[in-house]
Design a protein around this nucleic acid. Structure first.
Length: 574
RNA sequence: GACUUGGUAGCUCAGCUGGUAGAGCACGUCCCUUUUAAGGAUGGGGUCCUGGGUUCGAGUCCCAGCCAGGUCACCA
């Protein structure tokens, strides 16, 4: 089907043809070497103009102001924007002024990418500007760009619609420079984390995304199928079990930045695929791991911002070590005023209900405590805080607490009311591990869709013997949200998952008209006249349709013979 | 999944108790040799998300649907 073009798109395609006619390749192949960036020029020029007598820069045209024989434009490269000055008689020293009058003024648009060379000067208005000697079209843009303007920090006509920003992220990145910066910061976060871990001599590894048995977390998976093996495979929900098998194999520190996939709800904090860094270190425990997390995150924050105190939304968050530490029972006592550590299931349930938490009978003691914490404590924990010692029911892969029965050696770091990491002294008792899996299987039989599966390969490895090990998972996206001050996960993912766009219902209208013997050029106009299908056309008054078509023909200046009234009547009768 | 707000030009948005679809920017044409979100003049551009209904008449009111945002629930 032929693409429907807006007037502006058509104008650009016409310009493209004209450029080719003038012998200009709108998509040239050869390298355009630059020797400066917009930022370098702006920062260094007035103090040091010797180096700027012959600059070559390239970028996308973001604005144009044409004033007769002189013009201003701004181009944007990765570093920012710089103003260009074009003078007709310098661009075109001879008699032929085509390059300025036609190519630049008429055939060049906002959004096109050009390379220029020239010298830098300061205009009367005080703006650092490149006086262009030569310019080269490097890429013709065929779609209009949303034009965002700014003065004194005030933004005009901002490109803000989240749907368009996420679906057309390239536009968002071109037009909203602060968005480009968020992703730069995200990259910096990961790089600093990687540097920190490599400095400890841990090994960065890769483990399978496609897994025959999914494990390592409580979540519903995505399911797929391998043809050759004719078997079901799952997209990983975690890589924990594979990394521990590497610890069994003798590496003493392994980590992976892993894309994980969970088939669950989507929202401000949830995307179906997300990034998690998991780390396992042999001969360590969760106490030690808390120290590592504090140090690593503090380091990253300092590296990114040069300070530990950040503004996140309306709050100030300080990542300076040491972070506060609460056991889960202490946190509950602190925020509810009641110590539940000695209560049995019935009393905890009664207490939970008394403070407005909904419970049901499938919830055991551990789940109730988890609910209490999630409802009454977690949202209040704004400063980075470690919560330790979780109920054993919630943590089938964590080692039982060395001294507190019913608990495991586990901690989470909570920040801005959300979990940012989860860690434990890893369970390495194979008998205990098998039992915990069997309890999970039982939960699964009772209908818990998130219950873990029993992974025999993993158990075999554990039975071979895994050294005592501390394990950690950090949610990179959520940490990035906090460290870049973004309110939703979609703002720290380049391409967040979106519902697929539905093709327009009327798209097949012209085809159904041509199928009924109506010439294509009239079919297109019929659609434009508002007839979405054949049956709506059949019900129309033939005289009205005839008039509409003639009107549209005139309006759109289409150079074809008008239809005859009888002809139209026949289409409608069918 | 529930509730809630919204969908009007390429972009940002106005459009009252229903009465011939608007603005700014962007785009076209003409004029203009240094402008600062915007040089001057002028012109074109719309399936008002889709489909039904009420009405002489619907961008506006009613119903259904699609899409998106926000809040909540599950989950990292």
């Amino acid at each position: 089907m032929k693409q429907q073009l807006s007037e502006q798109e058509q104008i650009r395609r016409d310009a493209l043809k004209e450029l080719r006619k003038l012998g200009i390749d709108p998509y040239p192949a050869r390298t355009f070497d630059i020797n400066a960036t917009a930022r370098e020029i702006r920062e260094a020029f007035p103090q040091d103009n010797k180096g700027f007598q012959d600059v070559r820069v390239a970028g996308r045209i973001m604005s144009r102001r044409i004033m007769g024989n002189a013009s201003f434009a701004e181009i944007q490269d990765e570093s920012g924007r710089i103003q260009l000055y074009f003078n007709r008689d310098e661009i075109c020293p001879g008699e032929d002024k085509t390059l300025y009058n036609t190519v630049f003024k008429r055939l060049t648009d906002i959004g096109d990418i050009i390379g220029v060379n020239g010298f830098v000067f300061t205009t009367r208005m005080g703006e650092t500007t490149i006086h262009v000697r030569e310019f080269t079209l490097l890429c013709k843009s065929l779609r209009p760009l949303p034009v965002v303007k700014e003065k004194d920090g005030k933004v005009y006509d901002a490109f803000t619609d989240p749907e368009q920003r996420y679906r057309q992220r390239h536009l968002d990145l071109i037009v909203n420079p602060e968005v480009r910066n968020v992703f730069r910061q995200r990259a910096m976060l990961m790089q600093q984390m990687r540097d920190f871990l490599l400095k400890q001599a841990y090994l960065e590894v890769e483990t399978p995304v496609l897994q025959p048995i999914y494990g390592g977390a409580a979540a519903r998976p995505f399911k797929t199928h391998h043809h050759t093996l004719d078997t079901t495979l799952y997209l990983r929900i975690a890589n924990e079990l594979y990394l521990k098998r590497l610890i069994v194999g003798g590496y003493e520190g392994v980590f992976e930045f892993a894309k994980d996939f969970r088939n669950e709800g989507m929202g401000r904090f949830h995307n179906p695929e997300f990034t998690q860094m998991e780390l396992y270190v042999a001969y360590k425990d969760y106490e030690w791991m808390m120290g590592l997390v504090e140090e690593m995150v503090e380091n990253i924050v300092l590296g990114m911002h040069g300070k530990t105190l950040l503004t996140v939304g309306e709050k100030s968050i300080d990542f300076r070590r040491p972070w506060k530490r609460y056991t889960m029972y202490e946190a509950i006592a602190h925020f509810t005023g009641r110590d539940v550590s000695e209560m049995n299931e019935t009393r905890i349930r009664a207490f939970a209900e008394s403070i407005g938490i909904e419970t049901d009978n499938t919830m055991g003691r551990g789940k109730l405590i988890d609910e209490l914490f999630g409802e009454k404590c977690e949202p209040h924990l704004i400063q980075p805080t470690f919560i330790t010692d979780y109920p054993v029911e919630m943590s089938p892969l964590a080692k039982k607490h060395r001294s507190k029965p019913g608990l495991v050696e586990r901690f989470e770091a909570i920040c801005n009311g959300k979990e940012i990491c989860n860690a434990f002294s890893e369970l390495n008792d194979p008998i205990d591990q098998r039992q915990r899996f069997e309890e999970q299987l039982e939960l699964g039989r009772r209908g818990d869709p998130e219950a873990m599966m029993l992974d025999e390969d993993f158990l075999k490895a554990i039975e071979t013997g895994m050294p005592p090990t501390a394990g950690l998972g950090i949610g990179i996206d959520r940490l990035a949200m906090i460290l870049t001050n973004q309110a939703s996960i979609q703002d720290v993912l380049f391409f967040p998952q979106m519902r697929p766009e539905k093709p327009a219902a009327a798209s097949s209208a012209t085809e159904s008209f041509t199928g009924a013997g109506i010439p294509e050029h009239w079919a297109v106009l019929l659609k434009q006249a508002g007839y979405s299908d054949l049956s709506s056309l059949r019900q129309a008054n033939p005289n009205k349709v005839f008039n509409q078509l003639c009107g549209l023909r005139k309006k759109l200046k289409i150079d074809i013979q008008p239809p005859r009234p009888e002809e139209v009547k026949e289409w409608i009768k069918g």
